[in-house]
Amino acid sequence: MTVRIDQDRCIGSGQCVLAAPDVFDQSDDDGTGLVLSAEPSAGLLPGVRHAVERCPAQAVTLEE
């Protein structure tokens, strides 16, 4: 399980932070998404899947 954000695509919308606040944050420099925990525990996965689905830039991936 690896969570990644494609920084080139990210528009800094923060949808990932809303979906899984324990897994994502936003950079203070430009608001782009940051992965806090690239290997999140099973309990956090539903939120990560929402982030994958809701990221408007389709920049969040979860490799299972």
Binding site: G14, V17, Q26
Partner: peptide, 15 residues
């Protein structure tokens, strides 16, 4: 678009 959007996103961050 990114050139304009990125700096603005910072101002609208969730935190």
């Amino acid at each position: 678009h990114m050139r304009l959007r990125r700096p603005l996103s910072r101002g609208f961050m969730v935190k």
